[in-house]
Amino acid sequence: MAPFGIPIGVWINAFLTICILSFLYKDNPFFRFAESLFAGMSLGYYIGIVTENTLKPNLFRPMINDFWGNHNFLLVIPMILGVMLYFRYIRKIAWLARIALAVYIGYYVGVYLMQKLHGDILFQARDTIVPLTMGGIEAVWNVVIIVGVFSVLVYFYFSAEHKGALGRVSRVGIWFLMISFGASFGYTIMARISLLMGRFSFLVNTWVRPMISG
């Protein structure tokens, strides 16, 4: 089925896009419908993709094909832990879900701790220790980095009242933070406009233009 020679999928896509954009005028049932559909489909898609791309190849197939070989029997442990997460919906054994959750959190805390230490703290701290002896504009930027990092750290130091010298340095920190937030906001606007252009590009080039040109 292709009204005006345009595939039905494009019509559905265009309809749902307009439903979502209609919220800019005011809240309405079409927006609510598209929003609920999006949320439901996203969840369904996520369940499907995790089953097909992770659970089947990494858990079910190795256990079915060769349970004792290649230590596949050990997969029983994460499988049980995964099932235990859903025990929270059965009141009598809901407490068992906490054990699985604890293992899950423990694993990710371990990974994340090292990740942050290796990737953020050490690298970024090293990059803050910059030379001031070089000439030219580079030295100026290095001073900006040092002043910025120090003043922002002072702003987040809450063990003493921010007045006197501490208050003045802290205000410099606020300026650095505001400039940083401003840059982030500017980039965010840019990104949102590019998303809008992506949708408009679809509506104009994939939906309206072929309809006009027949």
Partner: peptide, 22 residues
Amino acid sequence: ANLVNAQFGVDVAVGCTAVSAP
């Protein structure tokens, strides 16, 4: 960047959205 580059030493390049750029 902070897991694969930092822990395994592989070059990492990121093509990001403008929101994440700063």
